[in-house]
Design a protein around this nucleic acid. Structure first.
Lengths: 158, 158
DNA sequence: AGGTTGATCAACAACGATTGTTGATCAGCA
DNA sequence: TGCTGATCAACAATCGTTGTTGATCAACCT
């Protein structure tokens, strides 16, 4: 599966844009390319800090925003408070666990999902479609043997 | 279309829960039942303030959260920074304009949208599905006569 | 009608995520 | 090597939202 581009490719792209390729940025590139999840800026910072303890959170934010502006990252806001950065550039959707907050990718396409022309949404020009399935991930389901309790109901359902 | 329940019904439900029905809360009920959009706490506050200038923002937050906890409102987070409260309890989806930030409802059901059993999402227990179409609303499209520029690309597209 | 109980208010502080600022230092790259 | 931009530290500020406190007021049950 295609995730974020390799460190080398990102290096090239940064140079092409006139941005310098610093060790900090390369370390961030590496952290992203080894990530299969949806890190927050904080978690990228934590990962990079382990091998480069002097890096600042500001630099991480800066670089992540640069990458997002270049289209090499997507940003993802599922209402958990902080922005997630998604290194997966393939079109895909998300499964958000309301219990543990984890976000899983779902690589499926739903051909029927399109805004009906002419209806209440007449004239809306769609540039992107996000489908978020909320619920309970497999490990959280496994964690509660038999009872099925409804967590919440206050979150958006549509 | 079914929006939030009537002021009378909400009054009953508040009483049944042991919550008092104050003029402030009734004013908020009225503001919601006359709303066809997706107000923020601030905009509810603004609406209620016009007829009750002494109400505090805290009270608005409190009451909106009470309503959401009772399931009479949905909360909606589309990454615009603040939480939207959705008085529309029918299952529906949303069209988010990346230019003006407006959110429109889309009452359509997409029967094919379901998490495939067994795949990478095996065991995920879905409790709700949100589809967000991002793009440009009709009025913003009308605002730019002929050029079509791509706004952003940094937002999540999957 | 009265008393209990909770709601409201004001004013302030705090939170967490993120961004701005500043000035000094450092280093990528031509 | 030098220009230029990146980084850093430290701090403050933003925005949306919630907590606190103490006083006042009023809804609602009896």
């Amino acid at each position: 599966m295609a995730v974020v581009k390799s460190v080398d490719v990102l290096t090239e792209q940064f140079r092409a844009k006139g941005l310098k390729v610093t060790p900090q940025r390369q370390s961030i590139f590496r952290a992203l390319s080894s990530s299969r999840v949806h890190p927050t800026a904080e978690s990228v910072y934590a990962a990079v800090s382990s091998e480069m303890p002097t890096i600042s959170l500001r630099t991480v934010y800066q670089t992540l925003n640069d990458l997002a502006a270049m289209g090499e990252l997507s940003t993802l806001d599922v209402g958990t408070g902080s922005t997630r950065f998604d290194p997966n550039l393939e079109p895909h959707h998300h499964l958000v666990c309301d219990e543990c907050g984890s976000i899983e990718d779902l690589h499926a396409d739903f051909p029927g999902v399109a805004v009906p022309t002419g209806g209440e949404a007449g004239g809306f020009e769609v540039t992107g479609t996000e489908i978020v399935f909320r619920g309970c991930c497999a490990s959280c389901v496994a964690g509660r043997p038999s009872q099925q309790h409804n967590t919440g109901g206050a979150r958006a359902h549509g």
